[in-house]
Amino acid sequence: MSKSKPILTSSLGRKLVMSLTGLFLCSFLVIHLIGNFQLFANDEGYAFNNYAYFMTHFAPIKVVSYLLYASIVIHAVYALILTIQNKKARPVQYNQYDGKSNSAWNSRNMGILGTVLLVFIATHMQNFWWKYHNDQVPYIEYTKDLNTGTITSRELSASEFTDYLVTTDNGQEVTKARDLYKQVDFTFQNVGLVILYVVAMFALAFHLIHGFQSAFQTVGFNHRRYIGIIRFIGVWVFGVLIPIGFAAMPLYFYFIK
């Protein structure tokens, strides 16, 4: 008698890991996009900077963020393991291989698209996450009139800033915060980064047009009644709306702000 191999050493088990981490990353994209839409608010970054503080200091969000970092790493590592196995499975290549007549380009090049995204994620985290966590962003003070709702702001020097602080006095709410909004504005004046961000969103679109529905297929969910809606969400939400929403941010700061 022999026992079946442990699930994580099997091809299907590893693909399950790819599928679940991938879907988790998809769910993150939705939250990330909705939150970042505050960049378009015409309030000198008041909403966005408060949101940035909340997202980096609220304990449950922090737990989820570590899950997220782990998911990115696991998704990439497992992709590498599976790709190496796949290369080994065909040691002699075809002289002619007509892939386009039986499958979509993006479905055959998920690794290339994923590598572009990995480079993008590293750059993106250096641009904002690293700078925010290492005190390399400017500081700002907002004064909000609680009766009229008008917001005025002034830049703070490093010596004037101690920590994120909200005080209310005499109908005036004063907020001192790290100005990630300004950092975003500053970063997206760099045309090279704007191009990288937009190209990466194209890669994201093609990665998810295949990846979203592929993840459902891998967990075994391919039901005639629901596959249509899954494909629709994969293409139109994750392949079109979300990448356009993200790409709009660097373009907005470069061309309009």
Binding site: S11, R14, N86, A89, A104, S107, Q213, S214, Q217
Partner: peptide, 9 residues
Amino acid sequence: FGNCTNTGA
């Protein structure tokens, strides 16, 4: 054999 990537080929 390799791992399925759901290309549909």
